[in-house]
Design a protein around this nucleic acid. Structure first.
Length: 278
DNA sequence: CTCTATGTTTAATT
DNA sequence: GAATTAAACATAGA
C-alpha cells in the first residue's frame, strides 16, 4: 500500500514494535524479494541483533541494527508491515517475519505481506544507492522551493512525470502527483521547464498539503482510500471545483486524471477565464 | 474471459 | 544524451 504516507504509517508501526528490541528470529519464504537472494543469509544476519532505529526516506524504509547492518524495505505495489495479530487474516501473502523480544514489553512479531511481490528486502552493511540517491523527502526535509524550482527548470518532460521521479522528490507516487496537481490547478502535461517560480511554490504547497491530508485520513481509518480523492480515480465525474467532467490520459505510463478547465499550463490562462457559470 | 491497479527497471524507439 | 513508450515482474478484484 505504498506512497509516502503509507510508508510513514508503516515506519511508525515498525518503530513501536521494533526499536530497541532484539530480533529473536527472522525468516523470509520468498527469495525473489531478497537481496541477496538468500533466506538463510537473511535469518543469519538478523538473528540476535538489536534494532537501533527505523527510518524512512521517500518510499524506502531502513532498519538500522546494532552491528551496523541495515535492512531496507520497499513495499512495491502491495507490500505492508503488520503486527502478527493484524496479519493473520492475510496469512496467504505473508512473505517474511521478524520475532522480537524486549525487556519489559514481552515479545512481539511483525509480518511482511506482499501479494504481488513487487517489494524488496535488502540486507546490507552500508546504505544502498536506492536510498542514497533519493531526493529530499517532502515530509522529513520539507521542500526548498528555489531548489525545487531549479530542478523543474532542468527537465523537459511532463511535470507529472518529473514529480514522480524519486531523485527530484522522494515519495511522490501516482496518487499524490495527481491530487497535488489538481490542488495546484496545474495541467499535468505542462512541460516541467515551463513551470515558473510561482508554479513551483504552488506545487510545493499542494504536495505538502496532500501528504498531510492523506496521513491524517490514514491515521483516522483504514478505509481512507474511499472517497478522499478529488480527481484520482474519478475520470468521468464532475470536478468538485468547477463541475467540468474529469478527463483521463496516460503520462509516463500511468493513468492520470485531471480537470481540463481548472488545471492549466499557466495561471494567465486561468485568470483569462470568467468564473464558472454552471 | 477482460481490464485495471498505490512501483520500478529495462529495453526499444523517437 | 534526453525523453517517451511498452513490457515485464505476480496477483487480486471488478
Amino acid at each position: 500500500m505504498p506512497e509516502l504516507p503509507d510508508v510513514e504509517i508503516a515506519r511508525r508501526r515498525l518503530e513501536r514494535s521494533l526499536a530497541g528490541a532484539t530480533i529473536r528470529a527472522a525468516s523470509c519464504n520468498d527469495r525473489w524479494l531478497l537481496r541477496p537472494r538468500s533466506p538463510a543469509h537473511f535469518s543469519r544476519a538478523l538473528a540476535g541483533r538489536t534494532v537501533r532505529s527505523v527510518a524512512r526516506r521517500g518510499k524506502w524504509l531502513r532498519l538500522l541494527l546494532d552491528d551496523g547492518t541495515r535492512i531496507f524495505s520497499h513495499l512495491g505495489m502491495t507490500g505492508e508491515w503488520l503486527n502478527a495479530d493484524d496479519a493473520r487474516s492475510e496469512a496467504r501473502s505473508e512473505r517474511a517475519r521478524l520475532d522480537v523480544a524486549r525487556d519489559k514489553h514481552g515479545a512481539s512479531s511483525v509480518r511482511y505481506l506482499d501479494s504481488r511481490r513487487f517489494g524488496r528486502l535488502v540486507v546490507s552493511e552500508r546504505d544502498i544507492t536506492e536510498w542514497t540517491e533519493l531526493g529530499p523527502d517532502p515530509l522529513a526535509d520539507g521542500i526548498d522551493v528555489s531548489r525545487f524550482a531549479a530542478a523543474l527548470q532542468r527537465r523537459r518532460g511532463a511535470i507529472k512525470a518529473v514529480l514522480m521521479d524519486q531523485t527530484v522528490l522522494a515519495g511522490i507516487g501516482n496518487i499524490i502527483a495527481t491530487e497535488a496537481l489538481w490542488r495546484a490547478r496545474m495541467d499535468p502535461r505542462t512541460p516541467s521547464n515551463r513551470v515558473d517560480g510561482a508554479g513551483a511554490a504552488r506545487l510545493a504547497r499542494a504536495l505538502k498539503a496532500e501528504i498531510l491530508h492523506e496521513l491524517r485520513m490514514r491515521t483516522r481509518s483504514d478505509d481512507y482510500r474511499q472517497n478522499v480523492f478529488s480527481v484520482y480515480g474519478r475520470a468521468g465525474e464532475a470536478c468538485k471545483r468547477c463541475g467540468t467532467t474529469i478527463q483521463r490520459t496516460v503520462i509516463a505510463g500511468r493513468t492520470t486524471a485531471f480537470c481540463p478547465r481548472c488545471q492549466v499550463r499557466s495561471m494567465k490562462a486561468l485568470h483569462r477565464r470568467r468564473p464558472s457559470s454552471r
